[in-house]
Simulated assay, not measured.
Amino acid sequence: MSRTTPGTLLLSRLGIGFELHPYAYDPAASRIGLQAAAALGIDAAQTFKTLMVEVDGRPACIVVPADMEASMKKVAACFAGKAAAMLAVPDAERITGYRVGGIGPFGQKRTSPTAFDESIALFERIYVNAGQRGLLLSLAPDDAVAAAGAVIADLTA
C-alpha cells in the first residue's frame, strides 16, 4: 500500500506534521470509521469520518466523529442552505478523486466548502482518513481545520 496520497502531499507542502496509521480495511464493515478505530485500538470519538454531502444541490464536505451521525438540518444551516443530503457515491468519488471508504478532507480533486464538527476541540490529536482505504492520519485539530480551509460547527444529531 502506498502511503502517499494527495492529502498527505498537501499536508507536507503546508508544513503540517502528521502521523500515518495503516490498518486492515474491511470492505464488509457497515461503519468504516468504527472499524478503523477498532482495528487501531483508538477511541471512536477521536476518529473522524469524512462525508460528502450536498447542500441545496452544491457539494460540501463534513468531518464528524465516527461514532456519531450527522444532522442534515445542522449541516444545511452550517453552509447557509435550506436542505442537505448525502452525495451519491459516484458523485462523491468523482468530486474528491478518492474512493468511498478512503475519502479524506485534504487534497480532494475539487475543493468543496468543508466543516469539522466542534468536538474536535476535545482532543489534542484527531484521526481522519488519509485519502486511501486502510490508512488514517493523525494531526492537531487546528492544523486539520487550517489545511482544509474549514469552519468548525455543531454538525451531529
Rank of each mutant, 00 (worst) to 15 (best):
G33T: 05
L20R: 04
A77E: 13
L87Q: 06
A45I: 00
F116H: 01
L87M: 15
D143V: 10
G33M: 03
Q132C: 08
Q35Y: 02
F116Y: 12
V75C: 12
V53R: 06
R94H: 11
A153P: 02
Q132W: 03
D154I: 02
A24Q: 12
D67C: 14
G101T: 05
F106H: 07
D143L: 05
S30K: 14
D117R: 05
K109P: 00
M86T: 10
T47F: 04
D154G: 10
P105T: 03
K73N: 08
Q46I: 03
T8Y: 11
G41I: 12
M1E: 05
I42W: 09
I103V: 13
A66F: 07
I95V: 15
S112T: 15
A70D: 04
K74R: 15
P141N: 07
V100W: 12
R13V: 03
I32F: 10
A37D: 01
D26A: 13
V145E: 04
A140E: 06
V89N: 04
S71Q: 09
Y25P: 01
C78S: 14
V151L: 13
A60G: 06
A84H: 05
A76H: 07
I62V: 15
A84D: 00
R110N: 14
R125D: 04
K49E: 02
L137R: 04
R133K: 15
G41V: 11
